[in-house]
């Protein structure tokens, strides 16, 4: 059964395997580069190489189970992406390309976001001198992923116990049927965000004092190797004499 809440649940923070120990800047670079590259790619072959590279990364991060979980939850959307692209373009290659791009982004996002503690991201953006309000907005957005996943599961169970079924009917009917889950989840998220903002202020968030940090990060040799990793498909294709243009 396609269950959108499974996609959210797959983004719960985890250990991240080897990736968990990398400098946050390296992880952010990997995430940005590997999400962007398939989007800029000119061919299905290159996109397939990116997908392979993302799958390899997820194996290193130990997030294969999470990806399986997310795929089970998103097969409906994958089918939808394929069908919509085929209906509007009539091009099977383009439709397949869009699906590969989606899969590539999904796999790499799960592998990297589950290996990145939101606080690391906050510290990193702080190092880049971004305003605290911006960095903490991002931190909280990531922090809320597992909370939202829990909320959606609880709300789904509560609605199911009153006879609700979200897995019947066509695509539009299913989207319409998601409303009894989505609306309470949004209300809950808004309520939680207000309490969280108050709790943060009650712990001097926004104080004019210069913020310190308990943890410090070091950029090592392993980080350097991983910085080069997103360029690998391009290098491999160049070696076999393939011209992307």
């Amino acid at each position: 059964m396609s269950d959108p809440s499974k996609i959210l649940a797959a983004f719960r923070p985890g250990e991240g395997g080897r990736l968990g120990r990398l400098h946050p800047a390296t992880k952010l670079w990997l995430l940005t580069a590997m999400v962007a590259t398939p989007l800029l790619s000119p061919s299905v072959a290159y996109e397939a190489a990116c997908l392979f590279q993302s799958i390899l990364l997820s194996a290193i991060a130990g997030s294969r189970d999470r990806i399986g979980e997310a795929l089970r939850g998103s097969y409906f959307f994958i089918a939808l992406i394929f069908v919509i692209n085929y209906v509007f373009s009539g091009d099977l290659g383009l439709s397949a390309s869009m699906v590969i791009r989606f899969l590539s982004m999904l796999v790499v996002s799960i592998a990297l976001l589950t290996s990145m503690d939101p606080a690391e991201l906050g510290d990193l953006l702080g190092m880049l001198r971004l305003p605290k309000s911006v960095t903490f907005s991002l931190v909280i957005a990531l922090r809320f992923i597992p909370v939202m996943a829990d909320d959606i599961q609880t709300i789904s169970a509560a609605q199911a116990s009153r006879g609700y079924r979200g897995d019947v009917g066509g695509p539009l009917e299913r989207i319409r049927r998601f409303a009894p889950i989505l609306l309470p989840a949004i209300v809950s998220a808004v309520r939680r965000s207000q309490i969280l903002a108050e709790a943060m202020e009650s712990r001097c968030f926004g104080s004019p004092a210069r913020r310190t940090s308990l943890v410090s990060y070091e950029f090592g040799v392993e980080d350097l190797l991983w910085v080069a990793y997103p360029l690998a498909p391009l290098a491999a294709l160049a070696l076999v004499g393939w011209n992307p243009t």
Binding site: D117, A119, L196, F205, A209, R211, L214
Partner: peptide, 22 residues
């Protein structure tokens, strides 16, 4: 639960202390 913004107990406890620059 609604007060937590961190992924570990340690980060949660140090949040306020970092804010006041200790």
């Amino acid at each position: 639960e609604s007060q937590f913004l961190s992924m570990t107990v340690e980060e949660e406890v140090v949040f306020g202390l970092e804010n006041i620059g200790l």
